[in-house]
Amino acid sequence: MKKLVIVFSILFCFSCHNQAQTNPKQQAVINADPIEVPLENGLAKAYFASGCFWCVEAIYESVKGVDEVISGYAGGFTDNPTYELSNTGRTGHAEAVEVIYNPNVVSFSTLVDVYFGSQDPTQFNGQGPDRGSQYRSIIFYQNEAQKKTILDKKMALAKTLDAKIAAEVYPFQKFWIAEGYHQDFEKRNPNQRYVRAVSIPRLNRFKAKFQELLKESAKH
Score class of each variant (00 low, 15 high):
170 Y>E: 02
146 Q>S: 00
31 N>W: 13
72 G>R: 12
196 R>Y: 11
22 T>N: 06
74 A>R: 13
56 V>K: 04
39 L>D: 08
217 S>C: 00
39 L>N: 07
181 Y>V: 03
160 T>C: 04
129 P>G: 01
147 K>D: 07
7 V>K: 07
28 A>N: 11
156 A>H: 12
180 G>C: 07
112 V>L: 10
194 Y>P: 02
6 I>N: 06
23 N>A: 01
24 P>I: 11
97 V>C: 07
112 V>E: 05
195 V>K: 06
154 K>E: 12
120 D>W: 06
98 E>K: 15
29 V>L: 11
147 K>H: 14
35 I>M: 10
95 E>Y: 11
218 A>L: 02
56 V>A: 08
47 Y>V: 08
219 K>G: 01
220 H>F: 06
1 M>T: 04
215 K>F: 05
162 D>Y: 06
102 N>D: 13
30 I>Y: 13
66 V>G: 06
37 V>C: 02
203 L>Q: 04
90 R>P: 01
135 Y>I: 04
58 A>W: 07
108 F>G: 09
162 D>F: 01
164 K>L: 01
209 K>P: 00
64 K>H: 05
98 E>I: 08
115 Y>L: 05
158 A>M: 03
33 D>R: 11
192 Q>Y: 12
107 S>C: 03
45 K>E: 11
32 A>C: 08
161 L>T: 06
55 C>V: 11
21 Q>C: 00
157 L>T: 10
54 W>V: 05
135 Y>E: 04
115 Y>K: 06
24 P>D: 04
48 F>P: 01
62 S>L: 10
33 D>I: 03
174 K>Q: 10
38 P>W: 13
103 P>G: 07
166 A>S: 10
132 G>V: 11
87 N>G: 08
191 N>T: 15
133 S>Y: 13
180 G>L: 03
150 I>V: 14
131 R>H: 10
159 K>L: 09
210 F>H: 15
167 A>M: 00
162 D>N: 15
105 V>N: 11
109 S>G: 09
37 V>R: 15
1 M>R: 03
60 Y>H: 14
176 W>P: 02
201 P>A: 03
35 I>P: 01
193 R>M: 05
176 W>N: 05
220 H>A: 04
